[in-house]
């Protein structure tokens, strides 16, 4: 499938990505559990940690998506135009996520201020 690499090398790459995904997932779970009360964090600490934790989750999930698409779905071995045609539509989602989230915040504010 991939130019120039052996069958054995292909298999190794798959297991390597499997390991990466497993580790990333484990990190995510541990980070999520840190928010749990057994760690004994104070309420203020939990609230303060929420935003950086969420950013971490989003970044790590994007990393997992990258590995799944590039190795499992073979995108890094495909010709460039195919890869671009698959990835480019995701750009449209960026503005959609921003606009919809902004709207959601706006609704909360309106409800809080106007009951």
């Amino acid at each position: 499938m991939a130019t120039g690499i052996t069958h054995e090398e292909s298999i190794k790459r798959v297991y390597r990505v499997c390991g990466i995904l497993a580790i990333v997932t484990a990190v995510e779970i541990i980070a999520a559990l840190s928010h749990y009360s057994w760690l004994g964090l104070s309420e203020e600490a939990k609230v303060a940690a929420k935003l950086p934790l969420n950013v971490l989750f989003i970044v790590l999930s994007a990393a997992k998506a990258y590995y799944i698409m590039s190795e499992f779905m073979h995108l890094r071995y495909e010709l460039k135009p195919l890869t671009i045609s698959v990835m480019a539509p995701f750009l449209f989602l960026i503005w959609a996520i921003i606009a919809f989230s902004y709207e959601g915040v706006s609704w909360l504010q309106l409800r809080t201020w106007f009951g």
């Binding site: 539509p89 995701f90 996520i97 919809f100 959601g104 609704w107 409800r111």
Partner: peptide, 23 residues
Amino acid sequence: ISDTFTFAGFLIAYAAIRFAHPT
């Protein structure tokens, strides 16, 4: 890709609703 956009529709609706609720 098209199916991803369907799920994205649901998840983006989730984002809007989630932001509209207090933490």
